[in-house]
Nucleic acid binder design. Structure first.
Length: 194
DNA sequence: CCCTGATTCGC
DNA sequence: GCGAATCAGG
């Protein structure tokens, strides 16, 4: 696959929408996330700029100490290149419905509105759990690994007992769905005082 | 381990 | 220009 105009457009759009490189690659098909990232860089829109420069403002002059001897990184001489104003400020950064050709999930630079669900377990979370439990891998205790959801389901005293086993949420011991109900912000036993 | 983007460099 | 391999971080 090559970078046709269309594909580049999709790339730009998704990237500006905050989609991850892998998501974009998946969407485009025929390319890896590396390809996407590479293209992004070549297009000069590495930084999801456009209007919100306040985001990931990583140090561009990221110099790597010569910690790698025979490495394949012969410290390029172009250490810090005066990356002037990115022409990225091309189009209107905001108010641009664009073509909602597909699913536009993430708003944009906006992280996400404050999560209202602070108390009690949202019915959605519970529903999500019962849903995922159907597709749970139902692992036994011995099959659990560091990256399998350790949420127990059923009664340990019966045979209807197993662990979720779905991919964990990274770091956490449970999958996303279970993390949702596992880490109750608080309460729930408030009015449950026996 | 999963994921993310960033960078280099042979092609 | 392209993107795999690699790096670096979460």
């Amino acid at each position: 696959m090559s970078w046709t105009d269309e594909r580049v457009e999709t790339l730009k759009k998704m990237w500006s929408e905050g989609q991850s490189a892998s998501q974009i690659a998946k969407e485009l098909g025929g390319v890896t996330r590396n390809a996407v990232i590479g293209k992004v860089h070549r297009l000069g829109l590495s930084n999801r700029a456009g209007g919100s420069p306040a985001t990931t403002a990583k140090a561009p002059a990221k110099e790597k100490p010569a910690a790698k001897p025979a490495a394949k990184k012969p410290a390029t001489a172009k250490a810090a290149e005066p990356k002037a104003e990115p022409a990225a400020a091309e189009a209107a950064p905001a108010a641009k419905p664009v073509t909602p050709a597909r699913k536009q999930i993430i708003p944009a630079g906006q992280p996400l509105p404050p999560q209202p669900s602070a108390n009690e377990i949202s019915p959605e979370a519970l529903k999500k759990v019962s849903e995922i439990e159907k597709s749970a891998k139902k692992l036994s205790l011995l099959e659990l690994t560091e990256r399998t959801c350790k949420w127990p389901v059923g009664d340990p005293a019966t045979e209807d007992f197993w662990f979720c086993g779905l991919p964990v949420q990274q770091g956490k011991p449970y999958c996303e769905a279970h993390v949702g109900v596992a880490f109750q912000p608080m309460s729930s036993r408030r009015d449950r005082k026996r």
